[in-house]
Amino acid sequence: MNRDLLVGGIFLIGVSLTLAFKDFTFLAIPSIGIPVTLAYLERYKNILAKSHLFEKDTLVMIGIISVVTVTFNFIVDPRIGLLLLGTGIPMIAGLKE
């Protein structure tokens, strides 16, 4: 229960600072703070070695998302590319299986 409250607190701090100052850089607080907190709390269980964080598919997806975002940033709004990825990738993955 304490872990959930801590993660929720970090998330609320980041979102509330973002809304208060209207600056998206405060979203770095939960995006960095939550994984660091969870890694620190679970450091004896070695969850990173058992996780699927560093699989080839995950790294390929991160690369594709980065390339599409940068490409669409030069052409049009990058959110359009992310929306296309959000709908296209699951459909491709469903057809692949």
Rank of each mutant, 00 (worst) to 15 (best):
R43P: 09
F54I: 07
I13R: 01
I75Q: 10
L59K: 07
R3D: 08
G14W: 02
M91W: 11
I47E: 13
I10G: 01
V7A: 12
F72V: 12
V36H: 05
D77R: 06
L41T: 01
D57C: 03
Y40Q: 09
V68Q: 03
L12Y: 03
V36F: 13
L82Q: 01
L41P: 00
G94W: 15
F74C: 05
L41Y: 06
A39E: 05
L5F: 11
G86N: 00
L17H: 04
N73G: 11
F26S: 02
L6D: 00
L59A: 08
E42D: 04
I32T: 07
F24D: 04
L38D: 03
L5H: 09
E55T: 05
D77S: 05
I80C: 05
I92R: 05
T25N: 15
V36T: 10
L59F: 14
G81D: 01
V7R: 02
M61P: 05
L19D: 06
F21A: 01
R43I: 08
I10S: 01
L83R: 08
R3V: 11
T37D: 02
R43H: 15
D23M: 11
T37Q: 03
V15P: 10
M1D: 03
I64A: 13
M91D: 02
A93V: 08
P78K: 01
G8A: 15
G9S: 00
D23N: 09
F26I: 04
N46P: 04
S31M: 13
F11L: 04
T58Y: 10
M1F: 13
V7I: 10
Y40A: 09
L17Y: 06
Y44D: 10
L48C: 09
P35D: 04
N2W: 12
V68G: 11
P30F: 04
F24Q: 08
L48M: 13
S16F: 14
F24Y: 08
I64K: 07
S66L: 14
V15A: 07
A39L: 15
A49P: 06
P35K: 01
G14K: 03
A28F: 14
V76C: 11
P30E: 03
L85E: 04
T37F: 15
L59G: 07
I32H: 09
L6T: 06
L53F: 10
E42T: 13
Y44E: 08
L59P: 10
F11T: 01
F21C: 02
I80V: 07
D77N: 11
L83K: 10
V7N: 07
G9Q: 00
L83M: 14
I62D: 00
L12F: 12
N73Q: 12
V67W: 01
L48W: 15
G14R: 01
I34Q: 10
M91R: 10
M1L: 08
V76H: 11
L41I: 06
E55L: 09
P90Y: 02
G88T: 02
S16R: 12
L19W: 06
L48E: 02
V7D: 02
A39F: 15
I62M: 10
F54Y: 00
K56V: 13
V60L: 15
I64E: 05
L5P: 00
T87Q: 10
L19T: 00
I80N: 04
I62S: 06
S51H: 00
I47Q: 12
L53V: 13
I47D: 12
D4C: 13
I80E: 07
V36S: 09
A28G: 13
R79Q: 06
H52V: 11
D4A: 14
G86D: 02
F21R: 07
